[in-house]
Design a protein around this nucleic acid. Structure first.
Lengths: 104, 104
DNA sequence: TCAGTATATGAATATATGCTCATATATGTT
DNA sequence: AACATATATGAGCATATATTCATATACTGA
């Protein structure tokens, strides 16, 4: 008489939401490029746009996205805003994935 | 005389593609639930649908997606297909994120 | 206060995504 | 072969997403 009494424990709604949101942030090439650049050095908006050949507007929109998820933060210096990484854990996920993609 | 001569090394196209695809797979709640369930135990399609209260068609479509990315594999037993995890690295990313979401 | 520079934002658009329905395919049984 | 069961697939639809353009806002210095 054999039976699997182990009941599968579903992920709760909140965890599911947070996890999916986190990965969604990392699922777009433009956001990945921005995060990867900020992982190297703090940058202002125009520097990001120049370095990655993106429109200023595009960068700004994506930074808002990343800022809402608290993945990046910024400091102001006059009219210039310097952005940097604000979530090391997510950067760890990103770097692991990059490493894996390259060596696999 | 100070100058930053460090040139930023962009991510190459292929890495960018693989990384974004990987995270895209993990960015949808339904796929996360399926992967998490398969992380617990091998399941056939109907079991997944039942356990997660999803339509058979929905499960099948998502399994195709995950299979294309080689995140899951299956074995056949008659008309029944048993699916299981095929990429432990991606499961590691998922589990880390779940852990982080819960304890943070 | 006015001009100049840096950044943010809203609207419009094109594309991608996920779900559902209906149906097809595949395998096993009689 | 006919039928039943398990799974896969295509089309249609609704929603989400990313980008661009035009414009607004914020700060600085003359």
């Amino acid at each position: 008489m054999k039976e699997d009494n182990e009941k599968y424990e579903q992920l709760d709604e909140e965890t599911l939401f947070i996890v999916s949101q986190t990965f969604k942030a990392l699922s777009d090439p433009t956001r990945i490029r921005i995060l990867h650049l900020l992982g190297e050095k703090e940058c202002n908006v125009s520097e990001i746009a120049d370095e990655l050949s993106l429109m200023q507007s595009t960068v700004s929109h994506q930074l808002r996205f990343l800022k809402n998820l608290r993945l990046v933060k910024f400091r102001r210096a006059g009219t210039t805003l310097y952005y940097s990484i604000d979530d090391e854990h997510v950067m760890t996920l990103l770097n692991q994935s990059i490493h894996h993609a390259r060596h696999d």
